[in-house]
Amino acid sequence: MARIFKSLQGRDRPWNAVPKPVWWLALVALALHLTLHAQHSRPGARAEALPVSPGQGVLRLLALGDPVAMNRLAMLWLQAFDYQSGVSVAFKDLDPHRLRQWLVDIIALDPRSQYPLMAASRFYADIPREDTQRILSDFVYEQFHDDPNRRWPWLGHVAIIAKHRLHDLPLALKYARAIRSEATGTAVPSWVRQMEMVFLEDMGELEQARLFIGGLLASQQVSEPEEIHFLNQRLEELEAREKEIGGKGRPVAERE
């Protein structure tokens, strides 16, 4: 470093060789520049500024033959509209249709990336706005079919959102059914497959829940003894509840 400095010193004329007006010009220009910047407010995230996605074709062109890297960069860029500290409240104003189109185009660049689905289910589907939650949940559901054994966690998350945020149990049940029927890999935990049973119970569909457990046990999708024991226990509980209420599988709402 010292050598570089010395060689630079040796090569250049001394500082005082620069005329004073040039120094003044530099100082005044710097001061004016800093003043100008001081007038500007800090840049914030602008929810309304989310543009329409240019489409997969343009994104592929911009990727310069490297869609995997483009997928990551585009996702970080999109995330910047939502994930800046202190402004997340404003993102309920994000246009959910545009957001969905961006996510569709980004995931098409690299279908193996889980990031767009994570963002859709964890960030955007959490926005307290029903249409956004529904549109993004539907995006996750649509994408789930392409790779169920890897994408089930995100559909599981939006199923929970459908139940607790949207209070739409039929929708939650639809997602849970999709997971149970399509995510058949060994890595999928059993509780995920049992979500359907929980939603059926919540809907008061006790008979269906009972049939679901019976079907699960008969299908031999369940192999762990503890799990079989647990399901048998739930089956007995359901039968007891059915006897207790007297109405075989009639939904709670109907009985009321």
Binding site: V68, R72, Q79, Q114, Y115
Partner: peptide, 23 residues
Amino acid sequence: FAGALAVMEVREIQVAVLGTFLR
């Protein structure tokens, strides 16, 4: 920096950004 922004796939994002930039 990109890794610090990412919520998941941190290593993947870091290596993709680094590889693209260096290339």
